[in-house]
């Protein structure tokens, strides 16, 4: 095997795979979920995972992987197995939310009632008064 790369030629690479040298299970360690804060004052947002043996190394890898090309203020890592998530199969538990329009500012209308009252009691509308001023 003759490579264009002199460094590779110096490695004296074996031609065939040595099956005993395959990676063993867990050799790449556990996974940590990474949360990235772009700048102070913003939320931390989930951006992906890293493999690491402990939280310190997870932070080091997260810095390389997620802080290398992006503006970054802060990172969190948490072991994947420590995350408790709701089940997508139960997504319908959230589906009543849009019906609760009484929680939305846009669901309140008062002007019709005010105008009706003003007309009945001879109160001149403030906006009308403003318009009349020279």
């Amino acid at each position: 095997m003759k490579s264009y790369d002199p460094r590779i030629n110096r490695l004296n690479l074996p031609k065939e795979e040595n099956k005993e040298k395959a990676l063993t299970p867990q050799e790449n360690w556990a996974t940590f979920e990474v949360f990235h804060q772009k700048k102070r004052g913003e939320q931390h947002v989930h951006v992906g995972i890293v493999h690491a043996p402990d939280p310190d190394i997870a932070l080091l890898f997260a810095k390389e992987q997620f802080g290398r090309r992006r503006v970054t203020a802060n990172l969190w890592v948490v072991k994947s197995s420590e995350i408790h998530a709701s089940d997508y199969d139960d997504q319908d538990i959230f589906s009543t939310t849009p019906e609760k329009t009484y929680r939305e500012a846009s669901d309140y209308y008062v002007m019709d009632r005010i105008r009706k009252y003003q007309q009945a009691h001879g109160i001149e509308d403030r906006k009308e008064l403003k318009r009349k001023k020279p």
């Binding site: 979920e33 995972i49 998530a85």
Partner: peptide
């Protein structure tokens, strides 16, 4: 393959024996 072999001792030294594999979320 060589790169994986050269790093193996470091990775293996840091494995925790009682670690349970968990699929990332």
């Amino acid at each position: 393959r060589k790169a994986e072999e050269k790093g193996a001792w470091v990775r293996r030294a840091l494995i925790h024996d009682n670690e349970q594999y968990s699929i990332p979320l």
